[in-house]
Design a protein around this nucleic acid. Structure first.
Lengths: 224, 224
DNA sequence: CTTGTTATTGACTGATTGGTCAGCAATGTA
DNA sequence: TACATTGCTGACCAATCAGTCAATAACAAG
């Protein structure tokens, strides 16, 4: 017990106001790095510069901490997307690109981009978290893109494809890119270029969705 | 010899030959259900009708058990795909559909379809497994589809898109469907119809990739 | 029936971690 | 300085689980 209680009288400071945000930032880091189940709350607390006991003063369980991360990170991003939709006027092709690239810049390139992968990974083992995420993030994000496709169809810009499936097919490569960058990307020698990938995707997708003036027999009669 | 001693005394039988396969089948079940880290070897052993000790007689660690599952399940499926490629003659559009739908029927609709989700989920926490899977499954699967796209381009069926990115974009919705069905599908009221989803995807993708005879100015100049 | 061989068991170990709480240290007050 | 309030700590508990191994049950041979 050489406790060396020396000059350092003050070993820590009380900072009640700043703790919640610091803990959320630390939690986002560790959750994205390790996944939900594998995240140790000791690590989160340490990264935030406090002890595990302190963490429990501000969040009463691992689950509530995680939900707070989602609410503070992805939900606002979705809301901004909804704002963009409402504020937009002009071709839906433009709006679609704006939303997809905007989401990529805001979420894909940031720490938050790790959350979707995490959720796919843990959805089955934590059905309650999955429901929460599905309601708060997925259904709203899908609804947003579906509204764009429906508006484009109503304006005669897009062909009359089932909006439910169109939405999924437009978003799949985007989400897949997110998942890839947080899983196997470290296995490849030559990493993917997200801008190029998304650029080609949008070109192909918009070209595929665009209503042909009076094209020949080959172009998507009704998509089954 | 057929003297079936009092069955009450015989509590188990020795079945050295059958154990490995039974353990593999049980392991696939539990791995897909719970994920890699969350799988308890006690559960695997129980499902195979043996004790954990027995499991360790046939596989010396959780990791080697998992690798055996991959080698016995997905790798052969890839190999069959490669066979299909070699045996095919005719339009590459047909081959592409054959491979995509074949993979779906063989892997997507079976227990094996849970493995890709599992791998995405655990890749970061188990880099060694990720490398193994990337080498044995992903790179071979991608290589197969890339060869189809390159052949199609050489035959003049497809436009000259970067095959690396074309491959990713063709496969992303397929893999995404796999991941979805093993994660959030249980959250939606109206489940997705895989046939319809893949059908629309292939229509859009093939239409997007198909070389236009002498189309106007709008159709994909060179995809950036 | 006896004896040797081996497939199988299940209790055990050691390490890990979500969550708890009694006590202490920082700050405020007089 | 003495006392009160409270933000914070870290040892601790209980549960979980990969991996081990001495004991034992099944079988075969003589």
């Amino acid at each position: 017990m050489p406790k060396t209680a020396s000059p350092a009288l003050t070993r820590w400071t009380r900072r009640k106001e700043a703790r919640p945000a610091e803990l959320l930032a630390a939690a986002l880091d560790i959750f994205v790095e390790k996944g939900y189940a594998a995240t140790r709350l000791d690590d989160v607390a340490a990264r935030a510069g406090v002890s595990k006991g302190t963490l429990y003063l501000y969040y009463d369980s691992k689950e509530s901490l995680f939900k707070a991360v989602i609410r503070g990170g992805l939900v606002p991003a979705i809301q901004r997307g909804e704002k963009v939709f409402e504020a937009h006027s002009g071709p839906m092709t433009e709006l679609l690109e704006k939303i997809i690239f905007g989401w990529w810049e805001e979420v894909g390139t940031s720490q938050l981009g790790g959350i979707p992968k995490l959720m796919f990974a843990e959805a089955k083992n934590f059905p309650e978290l999955a429901d929460f995420y599905y309601t708060e993030v997925i259904s709203r994000g899908y609804g947003l893109v579906r509204k764009v496709l429906e508006a484009g169809r109503d304006r005669g810009e897009f062909i009359a494809i089932d909006p439910e499936y169109g939405t999924r097919l437009v978003l799949a490569p985007l989400v897949f890119l997110l998942l890839w960058r947080h899983s196997f990307s470290m296995c490849e020698r030559q990493p993917i270029d997200p801008e190029k990938y998304l650029g080609i995707h949008m070109r192909l997708a918009i070209d595929g969705l665009r209503a042909r003036p009076a094209a020949g027999a080959s172009a998507l009669p009704e998509a089954r």
